[in-house]
Amino acid sequence: MSGAGAGAIRRRGLLAAGALALPWAARAQGGGEAWPSRAVTIIVPFAPGSSSDIIARAMAQQMQQALGRPFAVENRPGATGEVGARQVIRSAPDGTTLMHAPISTWAINVALRPNLGYDPVTQLTRITQTVRTPNVLVVNPRLPVNDLPGLLAWMRANVATASYPSSGVGASDHLTGEMFKIETGTQMTHVPYSGGGPAMTSVIAGDTQISFQNLGAVIPHIQDGRLRPILITSAERSPVLPAVPTALEAGLRDFVVYSWQGFGGPAGMPPALLAQVHAAAVAALRSPGVAPRLTEQGFDVVANSPEEFAAFQASEIERWRQVVKAGRITAD
């Protein structure tokens, strides 16, 4: 082999080794310290035990093991994510303060709240969309319905009493319920709760009758007969609930809805640092210690690029802005 050929092979080998070592050894700002040189805090703008919190803690544990630096999760709930988001945007863009938050913090707040105290488009760095999960339309099993036509007939005959709970104004289950009303031309009263757990409890108890809840959250209640599934909002049937039709199969057009989560940081993170944090986050999401656990809980791991996440976020803001406008929904 010629010296030039051997040199090319060596150069390719060095490039490959460098790519593999990126999350651990590359320099954050072109000659600066390697990331993470200090402890990293992941802000979750919702309470402990929420899906955002559970996923953030799984990622933090995996990244700590892989990178050899402390990763801590700090819960800062309030105002559908605004309290925690504002803490993040005030932080230095050095990779030591990051955020894991749901669709409401990244998109729905923009569509719903004209006086929002932060801008997730200009004041946050989009790192990756972490997961997504469809919603399942469930009803109290004492309701005399088994499919969408039966449910719509019952709703039209019980306009005064039909109601649906949500985990809060502006949450995914709230706006999915409003979107359902628009698509079907039906009416039902919205009853907001402080979280998904109390919302499901209200349907199980019969205080409300109908709800859109995340797949993973409703599976145990469906299996135990406490909730009856009518349809799922994914593009295809779920292997976890193979007998439950999609919204399209049930008769609703353009009703593919996912609740999703995103990972980010303050605006201004340097490109090299962003690449390192992205690589570490994606590696954690796809790791054998995290990915199977998320799948079991009904989540699809997305782990896309910052550019893909930004484009998706823009499309979601516009989609929910149209729902808010058509339904004349306010944050009050």
Rank of each mutant, 00 (worst) to 15 (best):
T295I: 09
A281V: 08
F309V: 01
F309T: 08
V290H: 02
P270N: 14
P270Q: 13
Q276A: 00
A281Q: 13
Q276R: 15
V282W: 00
F312G: 02
V302R: 05
V302Y: 04
L285P: 13
S305C: 12
Q276E: 06
A303V: 08
A310L: 15
A279Y: 02
T295Q: 14
A283W: 04
E308A: 13
V282T: 13
P271H: 05
V290T: 04
P306M: 10
E296H: 05
P306A: 10
V290C: 08
E296D: 07
L273D: 10
P270M: 12
G298F: 07
V290W: 04
N304H: 02
V277D: 03
A272H: 13
G289M: 04
F299E: 01
Q297T: 03
P271N: 03
A279K: 11
P270T: 09
H278M: 04
G268N: 14
A291S: 10
P271G: 00
M269W: 05
S287F: 02
F299D: 03
Q297A: 14
V301D: 05
P271S: 03
E296T: 07
G268M: 08
Q297D: 12
M269N: 02
A303H: 09
M269S: 05
A310D: 15
M269Y: 03
V282S: 01
P288E: 09
V277L: 08
P270L: 13
F309M: 15
R293K: 11
P292C: 06
A272R: 14
L273H: 07
N304M: 00
E308Q: 15
A280V: 05
E296P: 01
G268Q: 12
V301W: 04
E296S: 04
Q297I: 02
V301L: 01
A291W: 00
R286T: 12
N304D: 15
S287L: 06
A310W: 11
E296R: 12
A310Y: 11
L294V: 03
Q297C: 02
G268V: 08
Q313G: 06
